[in-house]
Simulated scan of single mutants.
Amino acid sequence: MLKMLGRYFLSFIPPSKANRIKINARAFTKSGKRYIVPKDVSLKINRAIWELQQQQKGETIKEPVYVSILFVLPDRRRRDLDNIMKTLGDCMVYAGIIQDDSLIYKQTLEKTVIKGRQGVIIEVYRYREKNIDKELIKELENYREKIDGIQTK
């Protein structure tokens, strides 16, 4: 049984990272990219951080975690959950839930539609290392050798 480290709620669906607008490549950030975040998007991100901070109890998690996220959507409009997850990972870091989003070793994203309702349920568990079948790793290596042989021709 996995040990739950925390359960968190958001009252709304945070914006996707795709809502950021890339600008001039002459940058001052680590990644060398600069973005403009529209004001309404910035306000929603700040609200998500605030809501998570209100629920944060205890120490910041500094170990690998498994994150299970359920998105409760008010309609069937198309949404890119993995881009929303990128925003959520950042919000969890800024709220002090996890030290770094690179500590998310496993995640599951699920959505359900409940007309007129919305929000996010986030469950954080201690990650347990998976035992990978040696035959599967051998198949991966064989595949890689095959692809490397094709690429060099």
Score class of each variant (00 low, 15 high):
residue 48 A to F: 06
residue 7 R to P: 00
residue 143 Y to M: 11
residue 53 Q to S: 15
residue 84 I to R: 01
residue 123 E to K: 11
residue 13 I to V: 13
residue 93 V to A: 05
residue 95 A to N: 06
residue 83 N to H: 12
residue 148 D to P: 00
residue 43 L to P: 00
residue 39 K to D: 11
residue 84 I to D: 07
residue 11 S to Q: 12
residue 71 F to P: 04
residue 58 G to C: 11
residue 25 A to W: 02
residue 51 E to H: 05
residue 95 A to E: 02
residue 127 Y to Q: 03
residue 2 L to K: 14
residue 20 R to L: 14
residue 78 R to L: 06
residue 139 E to F: 01
residue 22 K to F: 05
residue 28 F to G: 10
residue 31 S to I: 05
residue 136 L to S: 08
residue 97 I to N: 00
residue 119 G to A: 02
residue 145 E to V: 02
residue 139 E to H: 10
residue 12 F to S: 10
residue 54 Q to C: 07
residue 81 L to E: 09
residue 147 I to W: 09
residue 68 S to Y: 04
residue 126 R to L: 12
residue 136 L to N: 01
residue 146 K to E: 15
residue 19 N to D: 12
residue 37 V to D: 04
residue 143 Y to C: 01
residue 121 I to S: 04
residue 100 D to M: 06
residue 17 K to R: 14
residue 83 N to S: 15
residue 133 D to G: 03
residue 20 R to I: 07
residue 36 I to P: 00
residue 54 Q to V: 10
residue 76 R to V: 07
residue 23 I to C: 12
residue 55 Q to D: 09
residue 90 D to A: 12
residue 113 V to Q: 06
residue 42 S to A: 13
residue 95 A to V: 04
residue 66 Y to E: 13
residue 102 S to Y: 10
residue 140 L to F: 11
residue 125 Y to F: 15
residue 90 D to T: 00
residue 112 T to H: 02
residue 103 L to H: 08
residue 131 N to Y: 05
residue 62 K to E: 14
residue 43 L to R: 11
residue 148 D to S: 08
residue 78 R to C: 01
residue 102 S to W: 06
residue 133 D to M: 09
residue 133 D to S: 12
residue 33 K to W: 08
residue 144 R to D: 11
residue 87 T to N: 10
residue 145 E to Q: 10
residue 104 I to Y: 04
residue 27 A to G: 15
residue 83 N to R: 13
residue 7 R to V: 14
residue 118 Q to Y: 05
residue 9 F to C: 05
residue 94 Y to R: 15
residue 2 L to V: 10
residue 73 L to C: 07
residue 3 K to W: 00
residue 130 K to A: 11
residue 121 I to Q: 07
residue 44 K to R: 15
residue 85 M to L: 14
residue 61 I to M: 09
residue 115 K to D: 08
residue 6 G to H: 11
residue 135 E to A: 08
residue 132 I to M: 02
residue 139 E to L: 12
residue 117 R to N: 07
residue 36 I to R: 11
residue 27 A to L: 04
residue 66 Y to M: 08
residue 66 Y to P: 00
residue 6 G to E: 12
residue 118 Q to T: 08
residue 104 I to W: 03
residue 42 S to R: 11
residue 92 M to R: 06
residue 97 I to W: 01
residue 119 G to K: 02
residue 118 Q to G: 04
residue 62 K to F: 03
residue 71 F to L: 03
residue 103 L to C: 11
residue 132 I to T: 09
residue 91 C to H: 05
residue 68 S to H: 09
residue 72 V to F: 00
residue 114 I to Y: 08
residue 62 K to S: 12
residue 75 D to N: 15
residue 105 Y to Q: 10
residue 107 Q to K: 15
residue 96 G to T: 01
residue 153 K to S: 08
residue 67 V to A: 08
residue 59 E to F: 03
residue 84 I to P: 06
residue 22 K to W: 03
residue 114 I to K: 12
residue 14 P to S: 09
residue 3 K to D: 09
residue 109 L to Q: 12
residue 89 G to R: 09
residue 93 V to L: 03
residue 68 S to E: 14
residue 74 P to I: 04
residue 37 V to G: 00
residue 118 Q to N: 07
residue 132 I to D: 03
residue 123 E to F: 00
residue 116 G to F: 04
residue 39 K to W: 01
residue 108 T to G: 13
residue 67 V to F: 04
